[in-house]
Nucleic acid binder design. Structure first.
Lengths: 190, 190, 190, 190
DNA sequence: CAATAAGCGAGACGGTACGTCTCGTCTTGCT
DNA sequence: AGCAAGACGAGACGTACCGTCTCGCTTATTG
């Protein structure tokens, strides 16, 4: 005597099509101009099928993040043995992304999505800075003694990424000197 | 033969009413649920009068910022002579603001506004971290020798505020220990 | 070698539950707001079980009629020996039904159902005026000589019921004088 | 000091376009398949412009009736001097209309619209039988003595039209003999 | 007495239309 | 000319049902 619920199960193809449609439209137009009707149309799906499984645009985008459909994997810092240099490269790469309007829009769309939806915020937090490759790189450096062992890595990560986001929101161009100064402040090494 | 147009000139009362209506609705409902229609109604104004002088909702909110109608001045750090303690108080005050849903929404609404509109972003940058009371406080500390004279204050400011915003976006509660660790990382004092 | 398929046969309980659910919802909300989903839910039935046996909402309502689940039997004219008086009573009773909103909706729902579905129309015709108790009453009167033997009863019936329906559609209140004039016109007696 | 309301007045072109779109779609597809979206599209109008002025599809169709955009004027009885013959021709013409599916649908759509909307019902009543050309024809006959002067014309009209509608709802074909019998019953002449 | 095939409840699916909301523009008449 | 009021075309929102389809039972007949 099971807990059995009769009836059809969720259609995985539809789920995938919706997530992919949402992700591609997100990258094309950004969060604000992302519409449920557009997603449904591109996914060849009824709108109701979206609303059946996600309560809002934000929820849907949050799932896209979880599935890795939105964020480029170029955000992994290099690992040459010199943290300071690796992080400088990483930061400049990110700032580079923000130069062209695609990347600029992507980051700001993510921020807007996170600002508008708690779930997106939390998931973004997990995938971007709480359990990120950045933290991994920092931990590796701490273990080799390159960084002080008692450096609180989450706060370092937050300070770095926070500064990046702030510059992006403020539409401030990033020069190598600024990157250098930021690293000096946060890593405490000259 | 003057350059002067005929007809009435801009109605200052209308301008003020619109800015105040926008600011109050912004604080009540946040950026997303702020509508041009609602602003016009509360300001007893025609919508066209808004569109005549501001190109978008974002522009309007940016002006509200400039006029100091939106951000509470509670964000000025105290000045007791102990930077570390002052900043700790300041950070905890901000995190406190983010606890209740009003302040939570306010910050995230500002972030969303900045993400969606370049002008808002730049103006927010100027009033919040580039020329802010935070920088003032840091400069004072640098002058008294409390902080190293060569500490790059803009980067310190960015790292601190950036971390705050990141925690807000990630819906992360802030505890005193985290504040302490953050200050340790950024100010480089234990 | 029988023609009999294997497998279970039609579930009579389900059939009954569906008809009853349809009839009760019809009386509660009228034809327009009658939904297949609502019927299925009230009958604890899958929608497919309805569609398996009826092609449309109209078909289903038509069957409800046939089973006598919808029309009250209060529509039988009295039989006191005085046709004119009996029909007057009958007409006023019907007009009375139409006064309160339940009966008003019922008749108009029937009309709407008939207008939208040929089968409903034909079945309604049979149960309401072609082989109705009204015709019975008229025939009895014709046999006793109260009415002319050559009076074409179907046309009399149509004229009377048609007038009733017209008044209902036109939202015209019915007064006893109007009933009297109608009977004068149709029965040809003063 | 007037009751003046500033702002633009109703756009007559839009009003006309909407009524014409509704009327044409009504004749093409009938009441049930008439959609607000279709009307808005054909009228090059926003849906809101329809809902601003009419509360429902029914209201809109009622106005189409008032404007004479829906009903063909073929419903005027001829006037040869012989009422009985004129009405026979008129009835047969109507029954003829009901033969082809366009007219069939039109009448039943009108009935459905009237059944579903009180306003449509009342307006249809006024334009179809309360102040109709049928009544005119009957009155003329009463004045020339062709019909008894005390014949209650509204009831005659109701009985005739009611019978027509009943046959239409019951999907009953009409033969000349039936028409004749109906006239005998209602006009009381042989 | 299995195999098999239909009935059944539940409910997901692709759709259509709904009625509402807001946008940014346009129009009107007052000041 | 500036303004308030507000109508307008546009189009996304989230909801309600439609009629079909798929699932995993259950159940009667038949080989």
């Amino acid at each position: 005597m099971s807990e059995h619920r009769s009836g059809p199960v969720r259609n995985e193809a539809a789920r995938q099509a919706i997530l992919e449609a949402a992700a591609s439209l997100f990258e094309e137009h950004g969060y604000d101009r992302l519409t449920m009707e557009g997603i449904a149309a591109r996914a060849h799906t009824g709108k109701q099928t979206i609303y059946r499984w996600w309560r809002s645009k934000g929820d849907l985008v949050a799932d896209c993040l979880l599935e890795g459909l939105i964020l480029p994997d170029q955000l992994i810092p290099p690992s040459t043995g010199d943290v300071r240099a690796d992080l400088a490269v990483w930061l400049e790469r990110i700032f580079g992304l923000l130069q062209d309007s695609r990347g600029e829009g992507l980051l700001r769309s993510l921020v807007a999505a996170a600002a508008g939806n708690a779930d997106v915020g939390r998931r973004l937090r997990n995938s971007l800075w709480a359990n990120s490759s950045l933290i991994e790189r920092l931990r590796a450096a701490a273990e080799t003694g390159e960084l002080p062992a008692d450096l609180p890595l989450p706060e370092v990560s937050e300070a770095l990424l926070g500064a990046v986001i702030l510059r992006a929101l403020g539409r401030e161009a990033a020069d190598p000197e600024a990157v250098d100064r930021l690293l000096t402040v946060v890593l405490g090494v000259r």
